Amino acid sequence: MNAVNDQHASAEPPTEATLRALGLETMLAIAAPGRPAGASTAPPPDAPDAAVIELGLVNVWATLWAREGLGRRDRSLVTLGILIALGAETEFTSHVRIALNNGLTKHEITEVICHAAGYAGFPRSMAAAKAARQVLDDLPDETQARVQGES
């Protein structure tokens, strides 16, 4: 059980602070494994993206990614497909890295991109393929070896 589910069991809604803490913990575990505790790249509070990042911590990383029912690997598969369909290449690039951290292989990411072509269209899948290639080409050699699996 996670903090959100623990709160539901007690019938009290989680506080904003609880959700933010869970969101930050979940995001760092998924998006930045191995990052030293306390390290932050948070924007200044008055930066235009600060409010959006805060929304993401609470509404995406705490409320969605920390839910039970799907593992992180499965959530990555779903997220990649959705981002391809939306044509959100910048966000897709970030989630390719996250998917690799969650155990997907290069082959599996390629299959998600190919599968999406039939539903989201060739141009969106081609844009996603280019974004994925950029991420995969920039990986260190030891990571390249790990993600080469056939599935």
Rank of each mutant, 00 (worst) to 15 (best):
L19T: 07
R75P: 05
P48G: 06
V52C: 06
G69V: 10
H115L: 07
A3T: 13
L64S: 11
D141Y: 08
G69H: 10
A51Q: 13
G103R: 06
L100R: 02
E111Y: 05
N101L: 02
P123Y: 06
A128F: 00
E89Q: 14
P44S: 12
G23A: 09
A47N: 07
L86K: 13
E91S: 07
A21F: 07
N59V: 03
A17H: 07
A29H: 13
T18H: 10
G87I: 03
I82L: 14
G34K: 03
A50F: 04
A3M: 08
M27S: 08
D6K: 10
P44T: 11
T41D: 08
G118L: 11
E150C: 08
E68Y: 04
I30E: 04
E142N: 14
E142A: 15
L83P: 04
I30M: 13
Y119H: 07
W65A: 06
G38A: 06
F92Y: 12
E25T: 14
D6R: 13
A11S: 14
P36V: 05
P48Y: 06
R146C: 06
A127Q: 09
D46F: 03
V112L: 03
V60N: 11
I30H: 08
A9E: 14
A21P: 04
A117Q: 01
I113V: 12
G87M: 03
A37C: 01
P13A: 15
A39Q: 10
A47F: 07
V147F: 08
L104Q: 01
E150H: 14
A120K: 01
L86S: 10
A128W: 00
R67T: 11
D141Q: 14
L139E: 09
R73L: 08
L80W: 04
I53G: 10
P45G: 05
S76R: 05
D46M: 02
L139Y: 07
S125L: 04
T63N: 13
E111C: 05
D49M: 15
A85W: 00
L77N: 04
E89M: 12
E91V: 09
K106Q: 15
H107L: 04
A116C: 10
S76A: 15
Q134P: 00
T79D: 04
T18N: 09
L57K: 06
A21C: 09
S151D: 15
L28T: 13
V112P: 00
L136Y: 03
